[in-house]
Design a protein around this nucleic acid. Structure first.
Lengths: 240, 240
DNA sequence: CGTTTTATTGATATTGTTCAACTTGTGTGG
DNA sequence: CCACACAAGTTGAACAATATCAATAAAACG
């Protein structure tokens, strides 16, 4: 996902890349930002909180989510190092940001960023590019949530993770899954049981391997890609 | 799973408002833009097309959508007059834009807008605010698609329409539904049959009236709001 | 290690989909 | 102006996918 435009890329996680420029400019304006660390489960900000700071994710993984009053949750995305979090136009955060893993953040006053945007137009332009990228990812997720089957969702998710954070290995793409099955479910609009079941099916079909619950190896990326795109040629066949 | 944050605005349709400034600036740069009219069903641009122009929606309603190869469709939003359509960072459109009703658009070369952003930082800032607003709406839709029941989706949809384009009337909020049941379904992640059924149920419960298929009257906005937020106190009761 | 949390698997229930009939609205030409 | 034809909407019955409830099994953690 380094280059701005990869063909039809699945953007499951938030942009993150191409971030350095914006943050570098911020760091110039605020030479010694507050550094914050959070344990897994810790909260950066809640939906509804006053949006007084923006955060530069230095290390670890965050999840952004929204809640319904009865506790149903939708995760909007996972963020990795380089992501700029908490930049919203209004006075209040529209979603919650929590640590999935241990996390290190640099906190900048929102007002400083606003001033920086005023002073240096290139910063505004980079933010614009970033937001547009996020919007594109959001549209991809809407398609997934509105129209894809459970297996298609999982395939899309794994491929997107592979694209942003995947490591090559001899026999496949290795993907880390730091988040719980429940988190994955809340991201894909499924229950954790369904997530677990579908992962087991993908494994049974030989599309992936699961050395441990938090690491997947994509053995047949091409087949996964077809599945993710909705061209489920092998949805029930190939089980043999 | 922390504290339940109370409901905020339902943004079902694209922003549209606060638009004049950006467009006004563009109109100054391109005094005589190409004016385009489209009949219902007409296409402004397709997903994958080269993004050479941006469009200012003057009149009518557009739908933005993405397709899966097998024809499944997700509508990302409906646009009304004032919306700026087709502004993407990359070289290609990420979604399709089609006319729901007869539509009038002003077309501006993308390059002009880019230059304008360079020259006038305030334009960039307004675009930033707009994109951020769209992103917020997208997040609301993700919550809906991932976690709300069919009735909750319809209630959210009707209220959002009422908020952007609703007319007060003596006994309720009147909402125009220019799009088909199929469009509504593809927006809410449901089938057209389910949309029709749920609308009938809402009518049977007295929450709405339906003078004709393309006009709804919200008779009990408060109850609809509870339903939309997921606090379905009357989900099965109150049928009597 | 024992304890607790997380993940997997099974049985059943529910919601929404699919397929199909029928109704209503709409537009056109006789 | 009515009759017809076609598209859009509604309703019904059977079905399928996923959720829910419940029991194990496996990891993670102190």
């Amino acid at each position: 996902m380094q280059r701005p435009i990869s063909a039809q890329a699945q953007n499951a996680t938030r942009p993150a890349p191409a971030s350095e420029p914006t943050i570098a400019a911020l760091a110039r304006v605020v030479p010694m930002p507050t550094v914050q660390t959070l344990a897994p489960g810790g909260c950066v900000f809640f939906e509804g909180d006053a949006a007084e700071h923006v955060y530069d994710l230095v290390e670890g993984v965050l999840r952004l989510s929204k809640l319904l009053p009865d506790g149903r949750r939708q995760i909007l995305g996972f963020c990795q190092a380089g992501a700029l979090v908490g930049f919203v136009p209004g006075a209040e955060h529209a979603h919650t940001a929590e640590a999935v893993t241990a996390v290190k953040l640099r906190r900048y006053p929102r007002a400083k960023l606003d001033r920086l945007i005023e002073d240096d137009p290139s910063v505004g332009r980079r933010l614009l590019a970033r937001l547009a990228q996020e919007l594109r990812a959001a549209e991809e997720l809407m398609l997934l949530l509105g129209r894809k089957s459970a297996a298609e969702r999982l395939a899309s998710f794994l491929l997107a993770l592979a694209a942003t954070a995947g490591g090559r290995r001899g026999d496949g793409l290795v993907v880390e899954l730091p988040m719980s099955r429940g988190d994955i479910g809340d991201y894909l609009g499924l229950t954790l049981e369904t997530v677990s079941r579908v992962i087991s099916q993908l494994k049974a079909r030989g599309l992936i391997a699961l050395p441990n619950p938090h690491r997947a190896v994509l053995l047949q990326p091409a087949a996964l890609r077809q599945l993710a795109a909705g061209e489920a040629l092998l949805d029930r066949a190939a089980a043999a």
